[in-house]
Nucleic acid binder design. Structure first.
Ligand SMILES: [Mn+2]
Ligand SMILES: [Mn+2]
Ligand SMILES: [Zn+2]
Ligand SMILES: [Zn+2]
Lengths: 129, 129
DNA sequence: GTCTTGACAAGAATCATTCTTAAGTGGTAT
DNA sequence: ATACCACTTAAGAATGATTCTTGTCAAGAC
């Protein structure tokens, strides 16, 4: 946790609670999921504080935000390059850790500077089948 | 255009205008883009009508909606399987037509019924570079 | 022509996210 | 230990995309 201390990044109790909740969390929670959980410990916490912290954490590269669920943004403490699988029914998101070789065709690649890629798989999870 | 006539699918002038705008459109427009354009011909058209029609067209499989731009939904008349490349600066979305071999690892694949996949590439377009 | 089932316009409502403002606090320097 | 200041917070308002509601209308079926 100490490694997060840096210039202009203050470790407040609310922020620590959010970071603890996210640390190792594989559920790809939404801002609301985080809010509902952290509020148990900090009943006065505001929704805006959650968003502020998520944005700050994202800026600093400690978490990433996913647009795989069209209904709400999901947050992921795992910033290593990996992919996702979403259940179209219950919207559960799980990791797909595999190194796929995907490169855009050469002619597009030269004109457009490709910085990365993300694969979203969709389907039905075991519970929803 | 006649091929769209089917049970419970009425061809109204507004709908035809939306379909004409989308037909062959490679810009992946948002609902607002579509609204602003079609309104030129139908000044009384409502935003809700655009959304109603997009949802109906999507249900019938004539268009697909993309969540690649986290700020707004984009619509694509090309329903064939293809991928996308988004410019992180101007949010331009272009097609990537290539057949990548991506399959989730066996153990996930059996538990989870994978129905499809979509690759989003991100980077900087020629104009924004 | 009549009927039925969508489709329409208009605007209200919803919901996620962002912004604003005033008050509070962590971390650094003194 | 104290003071200071930039960053953070809470609270709520604002925004913006999307969905819902309601009364009216019209396409296509018969
Ligand atoms: Mn993940
Ligand atoms: Mn496309
Ligand atoms: Zn499921
Ligand atoms: Zn660009």
């Amino acid at each position: 946790m100490e490694r997060y201390r840096e210039k202009g990044f203050k470790l407040t109790p609310q922020r620590i609670a959010i970071m603890k909740f996210l640390e190792g969390n594989k559920n790809h929670p939404s801002a609301e999921d985080i809010y509902l959980y952290v509020r148990k410990t900090f009943p006065t916490m505001s929704f805006a504080t959650v968003y502020n912290n998520l944005e700050t954490l994202r800026e600093k590269g400690h978490i990433s935000s996913l647009s795989i669920d069209p209904e709400r943004r999901r947050y992921d403490p795992d910033t290593s390059s990996h992919h996702h699988l979403i259940c179209l029914k219950c919207k559960m998101v799980v990791d797909v850790h595999a190194d796929f070789k995907v490169n855009v065709p050469e002619e597009q690649n030269t004109a457009f500077e490709v910085l990365g890629s993300h694969i979203e798989f969709y389907g039905t999870c075991p519970e929803c089948k």
